[in-house]
Amino acid sequence: MSKQKDSELNPLTTTYEFLGPPAFSTFLLALCLTFCTIYHYGPQSFTFLHSKFFNFITASILVAFVEIVACYAASFRSGALLALGGNTGNFIYDFYIGRELNPFSFGTFDLKTFNELRPSLILWVLVDISMVCEQAVRRGGFANVTDSLWLVLLFQGVYIGDSLYYESAILTTMDITTDGGGFMLTAGILSLVPFTYSLQARYLVLIPVVLGPVHMMMILGFNFMGYWIFREANAEKNDYRNGRNPKNLKFMTTESGSKLLTSGWWGRSRHPNYFGDLLMALAWSLPTGVSTPLTYFYVLSFLVLLEHRQRRDDEACKKKYIFTLASS
């Protein structure tokens, strides 16, 4: 894996077929069923994700734990493809990072890649919608739902829809090409994402905040500036990794044959997509005000996660590129 070229993917994930129907179609189906239920039975019919919030958290943790243990045990079978950093011999670290690169891959199905976006992101937006329904019940209808909660649903819904629409882009990410299917990914994806990333919406149900048009427009602009950076930077990277260069970006070729962009977003910054992601994360928290740090958990935890990922990414790039550049 450490000698792969940028255009190469994990051999178990070289096609998009293993994911089955496009994730965006699944997302639209889930939204259609949800909105039809709410339209027919009223907002009170979809408040169960709010009222049973901690029950669902408990269930997700149990499911994640069973999956993690099963993946770790299965990694000791003969012929398992181990992750580069997940077979150190240290049980705690290997259990956390994931010992096997692609656990439970059957034919065209890969569990880790399936988990990466579909169950967590779709559940996340359904939790947000349930919070909107709960506030609608409490305040006498959707017309009385606060502008702050609508903003959170809009921002996070667009982000989730974007991620699912461009699902194939995850095949070149560190999660898929490097990290194993361990505690970090599985518990983070199945439990942390849907139930902590929706804290802003849950807070606004309990403590409604009315922003007004001026503050609302300012936060809108802040979010979509982050989205523009995030989308443009990722589009450049994904085009280039897939053999396309519509902007005629400049690049340099290393001795191993790998190519590094030296212009565009990636010529100006090491991780421009991370910066856009963080701007959006902050915009999702701003509608809740500054009375509690709880609703800023996502942006703070995301900052720690990205810093950790950047360090690992820089180390991998140092081994992959610096050596070849020095020897050329």
Rank of each mutant, 00 (worst) to 15 (best):
K237S: 06
L82G: 02
K5M: 12
F35G: 12
N144M: 03
L9C: 02
P22K: 12
W265K: 05
G157K: 07
G212M: 06
L204E: 05
S75Q: 03
G276A: 01
L279E: 01
F114P: 04
A233I: 07
V63K: 00
V214E: 12
T295E: 05
F46H: 06
W266D: 10
W124N: 07
G226Q: 03
E315S: 13
Y166A: 12
P293H: 02
N10R: 01
P21S: 04
A316S: 12
T262A: 05
I170A: 06
A73C: 13
L260Y: 02
A143Q: 14
P43F: 03
H215D: 10
M216A: 14
L19N: 10
N102V: 10
F251W: 12
L185E: 02
R270Y: 10
D128L: 15
R99V: 03
T15W: 04
C32W: 07
E307S: 14
K3Y: 11
S301T: 10
W265Y: 15
T14S: 13
L101P: 00
E167C: 02
F109V: 09
N238I: 09
D6W: 04
N223F: 13
N10E: 10
S198V: 05
D162S: 05
G180S: 05
L206G: 05
G42H: 05
S7N: 11
C36G: 04
M225Q: 01
I207M: 06
L260M: 11
G107P: 00
K52S: 14
K237M: 11
S7A: 10
